[in-house]
Design a protein around this nucleic acid. Structure first.
Length: 554
RNA sequence: GCGCCCAUGGCUCAGCUGGAUAGAGCGCCAGACUACGAAUCUGGAUGUCGCAAGUUCGAAUCUUGCUGGGCGCACCA
């Protein structure tokens, strides 16, 4: 709808230019939006005001000219007005709104699927926690945001691939191996001084005990270096399996798991560095290799090969992103914890050095989660082993409530997650508000069937009886659904879906409380059944994108 | 010290990429089930959009400077 109006306006402006009513100007981006105040029409545009300064004419006069040259062949506009400084307000024919429920049902679960993505290949990389311990609540937010964003982009016509980068190389993994070795020795009765930087969670003991059971005490005397790397491989694999299972139960799955270790083994790192050195992006100070990230706006150059000869995480990350591009993705999206924001200029520098545009990589920062229980903060620390795991949250509050709670705010704003509130099945918990709207509609349809009123074939139903303001409000809201999805996809802001759902559910609940769907009038009843069924389809559709269930009963 | 992010009713947050009278939820007050599900609805009170300038037809939104909070500033990941 919005698009059609934009086209109308563009046509009118072109017509004006042809008639030399005003200077041929570069057409600014025309905005059409839904005014807050319904008296200002169903849609309003600021086109005249945008043109005013360029064409050096009075905006109201321009608005007048636009309207005079506006062609509306199908007659969807019932009236227009010029208001305020030069807004053009459009009133759309009610018969058009009354087609909306049918349009929704025509498209079914495809309603709102767009083609903006035009098949472009997008990769979303998220979670990517190193396998040194189970996922905790902090990872959960990034997991949901990434998953939902991937769903959304898929809906918008992108070819989406979800990837988990396994940081299975480097110090942290070494640390893991050492931690396992200590617990292994303890398990066999030796006294050890557990290292400061070790991982203290109980899961380490479990892994060590398993090794003892399977392989006995032979590693007490084996070469320590080899044992540590063997242990961290075993532990890493075991923990990764657990992570995958937790994510699966959380409704998050990946198309690819990409191993950092394999990046090294396939020589993806050193070869690339040599290449970049030839191009002059990398220099040596005799002991270490530096990447000239300052050439691309970073505040200082960054080390890629350490004094001890080992590549840094950054070096591997350059290779990783090069690898991503080489797989043919048109757009990369990385989802990071907000505490990594300082890393962005470095990676962008690398992207540009690799010959890509900075915009080819979008980085979404997800703020850390403040975990609370009944208002009291819960301490979190991976190393000490004191943390609330994703598994525990799933068991305690459930998947739907957990996911929905993470989607209620912009991802770059702080989020308080209160376990007590999230598990309450009450009005403090917005997920039920939306699910209830869905269940309620299902209940109406069930009840109708019991009374012998089958869900009518919507194509045969006359929706003209839908004349109440609340009905129009519902239909207008439904017409906005594709526009909302498009905005969310373009801005990569998944929380918009949650807010939309809340608004739609509110209209439905309000309508329900005021009006009966089933009336004495068969025609009206049919029309209303079609209306609420269309609402149900959108609720289910949007909840599907969020990965939250749309229950028929609660 | 430098950099990034945030600041909107008592609380938690939206605000559609600069639009018309700034909105929800929670909490508070008063109401609605002989009705398709009260996990719902209806009505009411609450604002110097942190402060101060600037940009223009128009600013919560963009610029700059302050104030206050979070996070970064590794040859960790």
């Amino acid at each position: 709808m919005k698009q059609r109006l934009i086209q109308f306006i563009q046509g009118a402006v072109n017509a004006c230019v042809e008639k030399n009513l005003f200077e041929p100007v570069e057409l600014p981006r025309i905005e059409v939006e839904v005014p807050a105040n319904p008296e200002h029409g169903d849609y309003a545009s600021n086109a005249a005001m945008m043109l005013a300064s360029l064409a050096r004419q009075n905006p109201r006069k321009i608005a007048q000219m636009i309207l005079e040259n506006l062609s509306d062949p199908e007659g969807i506009i019932t009236s227009t007005q010029i208001a305020g400084p030069g807004f053009i307000n459009f009133f759309i024919s009610d018969t058009l709104w009354r087609q909306v429920p049918k349009n929704v049902l025509d498209a079914g679960d495809q309603y709102g699927c767009l083609s903006t993505g035009a098949g472009k290949k997008v990769q979303v990389e998220f979670v990517s926690a190193n396998p040194t311990g189970p996922l905790h609540i902090g990872h959960a937010r990034g997991a949901v945001v990434g998953d939902v964003l991937a769903n959304l982009l898929q809906r918008s016509g992108y070819a989406v691939s979800r990837e988990y980068y396994i940081n299975d190389a480097g110090n942290q993994m070494n640390n893991l191996g050492i931690s396992v070795l200590h617990r292994y020795r303890e398990c066999l009765g030796e006294k050890t001084a557990f290292p400061e930087t070790g991982y203290r969670g109980d899961y380490i003991r479990q892994i060590s005990a398993d090794i003892v059971k399977k392989e006995g005490p032979r590693y007490l005397t084996a070469d320590e270096g080899q044992t540590v790397s063997y242990f961290n491989a075993i532990a890493g694999a075991a923990i990764l399996e657990e992570i995958k299972q937790d994510l699966k139960d959380f409704g998050v799955t990946f198309d690819h798991y990409f191993s950092e270790k394999q990046l090294y083994e396939s020589d993806g790192v050193t070869g690339l560095l040599a290449d970049l050195q030839k191009k002059g992006f990398i220099y040596s100070d005799g002991e270490t290799l530096w990447f000239k990230t300052t050439d691309f706006g970073d505040e200082k150059d960054r080390v890629v090969i350490r004094k001890n000869g080992e590549p840094t995480y950054f070096a591997a990350d350059i290779a990783y992103h090069k690898n991503k591009f080489s797989r043919g993705f048109d757009l990369l999206i990385d989802i990071w914890g907000a505490d990594h924001h300082g890393y962005m200029p470095r990676l962008w520098a690398a992207i540009e050095a690799l010959g890509h545009k900075r915009d080819d990589l979008k980085i979404i920062l997800v703020q850390l989660v403040n975990l609370l229980r009944a208002g009291e903060p819960v301490a979190m620390s991976t190393r000490s082993g004191e943390f609330v795991t994703l598994r525990e949250v799933l068991d305690e509050v459930g998947r739907d409530a957990a996911r929905y709670n993470f989607l209620m705010r912009r991802s770059d704003s702080h989020l308080d997650f209160d376990l007590e509130v999230a598990k309450k099945q009450s009005n403090e918990n917005p997920v039920y508000y939306v699910q209830y709207a869905h269940a309620r509609i299902c209940s109406i349809i069930r009840m109708a069937a019991e009374r012998g009123i089958a869900m009518p074939e919507y194509r045969d139903v006359d929706t003209d009886p839908l004349s109440l303001p609340e009905e129009k409000a519902l239909m207008k809201m439904m017409a906005r659904y594709p526009e909302m999805l498009d905005g969310a996809a373009q801005s990569l802001e998944v929380h918009r879906i949650t807010f939309y759902l809340n608004d739609l559910a509110a209209l439905l609940h309000s309508y329900y409380n005021k009006n009966k769907v089933m009336t004495d009038n068969a025609g009206l009843t049919s029309a209303r059944l079609v209306l609420v069924e269309a609402v149900r389809v959108i609720l289910a559709n949007a909840l599907g994108i969020l990965g939250v269930a749309a229950p028929e009963k609660m």
